[in-house]
Every structure is written in C-alpha cells, then in structure tokens.
Design a protein around this nucleic acid. Structure first.
Lengths: 232, 232
DNA sequence: CGGTATCCACTACGATACTG
DNA sequence: CAGTATCGTAGTGGATACCG
C-alpha cells in the first residue's frame, strides 16, 4: 500500500482509507445494516463487482470491517468510522442542493424504504403495497413498479408480482416521493398536492404514512438559505 | 457537473464534494487557518498547482469556500464540513497504524508547528529556535534544518539562517519528533531517551516544551489494542 | 452466491514551462 | 503571488465472460 498523500497528519491517513471513490457509500450500506455482498451491491448498484470486492478488501485490510463466512461486519473502528459517514451525510442533507433529476432512482429508493418500515405499527396480517412511479427520467431502464411485502417481522421487496392481493396502491411522482423520503417535503402535503396517491384498503391506506419511516437523514434541519434555494 | 454516484442519498451527494482526492487535506489547511493560495499549498506540498486550483474552484462552486481578493474563507457550510474533517482526523488518530516512515516530512512538520505556538507563554523578547532533524528517510530532499522565529505576536518559519542568534537548539530524530507532535509519545520521554535534545539558553530550553502546542489531534485517546500494535 | 480474469478506454493527474 | 497552458502517461475502473 503506497501512501497517496505522503503526510503523517491523521486527516491524510484517514482520507487514504475513507475518501476513496465509492468507499463512503459502501460504508453507508454497512451502517444501514447490509451484511452480504449482494445486499451491499443492491445499495451501490453502479459500482462494478470487481471494484466492490477491491474496496471491501481494502476496508478489511485497514481493520474497518471483517468478513466471517460471507457476512461483512463493521469492527469497532468501523462503527466509529460509520459515525463519520453519518456526520458527512448530515452535512449533505443540510447543505447540498435539492435532489437532482439525474440522481433519481426508483430501485434504490424502494431498496432503502424496505429497510425503514415501522414493523411494530403494522397490523398482524400481511400487507402488500404496490408502488407505481411516474415522472421517471427518460432513459432510466429500472422498473417503475415495485411491491413491498410486509409480513411481520419480514419485509420483502419484489420487482415482479408477488402473487398476493394488493392492499395499498401508491402512485407517485418519483421526484416527489424521493423528496418525501429525504424529508424535503411532508408526505401529507405531497398527497394533498396530488404528487402521491394512496388508494386501496381504506384503513391500510390511511395508516400507510405511519408505517413508512423516512430516511434516517430526513430529520436533519436545513438552514433557511438552502430551503429557499430549493423553492427557487 | 456530472454525478459520480448517481444516488440521491445525502451521503453520496456529500461524498461527491468531500471524498475527492486531496479535498479533505485541503479543507484541513483551511480549518487550521490558511487563507492564501501559497499558504494552502505549503500544507499540501505534493499536490500540483493546477489541481489545487481545480479543487478550490470546486469547493467554491459547492458553496464550501469563498474567495475575496485572494483570501480563501470557509463559508458557514464550510465550517460545518470542517467539523467532518476534524471528525475524520480524530478517527484517524484513534484507529490508524502508528506513523509510517514514508509519511515523515520535516518541512510539513515545521510548517504545522509554526501554527501551534503558545504565544502567550513566550517571553517578551524574540526567541529563535533551530531544529536539526536526523533519521530522515533517504531520498528525502527537503532541508533538515529549520528556524522558528518567535517574536510576539509573529511566528515565522525559515529554511535559511535568519541572521539572529539562536536561543534554543533542538536536535531530534524526525520519527520521534513526529510522534511527539501526534501525541503518540510524550516529549519528556523522548528527551529522556535521547531522541530529542534541547540545548542552548537554559531558561528557554527548559520552557520550550511548554511553548510548543502539539497537533490539535494529539489529545485523541487511542484504544488499548492500537497502542499495543504501536509498541509491537 | 460471491467472487475471478482479461482487456481495453479513458481521464485524472503530474511535470514542466509560461504569464499578468 | 496566483495562477494558465500543454502534453504524456500511469493507473483506475468499466465491460464482459467465466468459475467453484
């Protein structure tokens, strides 16, 4: 391992580990709970398999993660580095421009969502939610329809019809739903404005917004100047 | 500006700004107080001028810094991102391996030191400290001798004889002094072990360790396992 | 599922020299 | 002091196919 920066400063040494391409995003997946290779890659879909392997090895070599029979785990050092990831993400939520069209990704969004369901607020029985996204940027080849199978304590994400009756239909503009997810837009407002439509079983449709926890960074407060920039 | 990661997640968006090559190190210089282009480059000597220009422009475009008639300044967003830099450096001080030989750099070390002098503990009169480093890795072409001119409230670093009488001579093994600077080794111990020799004016030589504040990350606590790894 | 292996394209970067 | 301009290249990583 050759030193990139050739500096003794701990910021430089840590940057050689942390500030490599893809590494913060990979660490985010681990912080959010992914353990297996393919799960991690679902959260970082645009990385090549070879590069993901390489990055994971590097993190392991630096003592940030371990791999025991196929399960990647953050070490103690890794959990502390995970706090830096959260800090960086918090900064991003506060200070970066509102979500851009070329970052929209329905597959990634639903993958994130399936990890943030308030299981304890679900009814006992299985609930199936079908999402249909509109306003997907042209050229994006990802599916527009997804199913969330909520069956305590399991949550499964499907991209093909799961074969159960659908309880809740969510028809949403992708940009708006992404903003809701990121805390940039209150879901009730998006529903009022017609950007998100929730139909189906009356009770379930009413409760749906309360099951869906948002991104862990959705609660970050934004400075007034940035909020105004968003409106512009 | 094309999106590197193509993800809406604030961690990914922030990483496109922060986790670029050299950027955390440049931000560290700004956090430590450098304002002018050439001062910043003294703290990041191995970056090319062209790339430093490019990175500074990128940071400005993202609202992290501003440039007003030659003075770079962190914006409010920049100060908050600076906290992430500090967090990352703190992690590095805690969890990365002890300083490696290929990271030793006397020029950088003295440049860092000149910003960390306890001015209020200095005597009224001018003090000149001469550093001679031994144990510099072969092939390193940087000077081995440096002078620190302490003249309240100014601190100047010279690489040529400043023309004043020297009050304190510091003769030190570069690796040991770097460890002292990083808080890995108590200075009194390094002096006892003969790794650092401080001679010259009796009073000044005795007070020298109290003038020299160490790296802002020197006080970070290290887990037992890492400390032991260092001894090994 | 969790990787390897190969090959090629690109581009980011360093080196060097010049400038208002 | 604070950049610009030019050019050659190392090395990074994407695409694709294969493997235990």
């Amino acid at each position: 391992m050759k030193s990139v920066y050739g500096q003794f400063c701990p910021v430089a040494v840590a940057s050689e580990i942390f500030a490599e391409r893809w590494t913060p995003v990979i660490l985010r997946e681990l912080v959010l709970g992914s353990r297996r290779f393919n799960d991690i890659q679902r959260g970082v879909p645009r990385i090549s398999r070879a590069l993901l392997v390489k990055r994971l090895r590097e993190l392991a070599a630096h003592g940030v993660i371990s791999n025991e029979n196929g399960e990647y785990q953050l070490t103690e050092a890794g959990h502390e580095l995970g706090q830096v990831v959260v800090h960086l993400g918090t900064w991003g939520a506060r200070w970066t421009a509102p979500v851009r069209r070329d970052r929209l990704d329905a597959k990634l969004l639903t993958w994130d969502m399936h990890r943030r369901i308030a299981l304890d607020r679900l009814p006992e029985k299985r609930v199936v939610v079908r999402f249909d996204f509109r306003g997907v940027p042209a050229g994006n080849k990802a599916p527009k329809t997804y199913w969330l199978l909520l069956e305590r304590p399991e949550v499964d994400l499907c991209i093909i019809e799961p074969g159960f009756d659908v309880d809740v239909y969510v028809d949403a503009d992708l940009a708006s739903f992404t903003k809701v997810w990121l805390g940039e837009l209150p879901i009730r407002q998006a529903i009022r404005d017609g950007d998100i439509n929730v139909t189906g079983d009356r009770q379930s449709a009413r409760d749906f917004p309360s099951w869906l926890l948002l991104s862990t960074l959705a609660a970050v407060s934004r400075p007034v100047a940035v909020v105004q920039r968003r409106v512009a």
